[in-house]
Design a protein around this nucleic acid. Structure first.
Length: 119
DNA sequence: ATAATGACTGGGG
DNA sequence: ACCCCAGCCATTA
């Protein structure tokens, strides 16, 4: 929770603009941890309710919602994304070629990984 | 300290 | 393109 990597994950996710999505692996790579996709998932899993982190914009590399895919959690995430204008295909998948986030530019990226800010 | 569990992935069949 | 699986890594039991 107060883990520095988790904080970096939250800062990065907050950079994803409405109507765009990123993958767990993508977030991990941006933060210099190419094999930490599952850890990113855990970081989002431990986000408290009412947080300003747009957790719904993070999905798996196959363009599918992994959170509680068969329960209410997945339905909530899907509705939140559709409310931002994102469209799901017949198979419940999002085309990353269309809705995928390009990622932060170089300067923005340094602000995410670099500053050990602790407010 | 060992084993099981996930909001994951890339590669092989 | 789909399914399966070993590898990965923080958290729990």
């Amino acid at each position: 929770m107060t883990d520095p990597f988790f904080e970096q994950v939250y800062r990065t996710v907050r950079c994803i603009p409405p109507g765009k999505v990123a993958t767990y692996g993508q977030i991990a790579r941006i933060l210099g941890r190419p094999r930490g996709a599952r850890t990113v998932g855990w970081a989002l899993h431990s986000i408290p309710e009412g947080s300003d982190v747009p957790w719904q914009r993070v999905i798996n590399s196959r363009g599918v919602i992994t959170l509680d895919a068969h329960g209410p959690g997945g339905a909530i995430q899907r509705s939140l994304l559709e409310a931002e204008g994102i469209v799901f295909d017949e198979q419940g998948r999002i085309d990353l070629k269309v809705w995928g986030w390009a990622g932060p530019d170089l300067a923005e990226r340094q602000k995410l990984v670099g500053p050990p800010d602790a407010s």
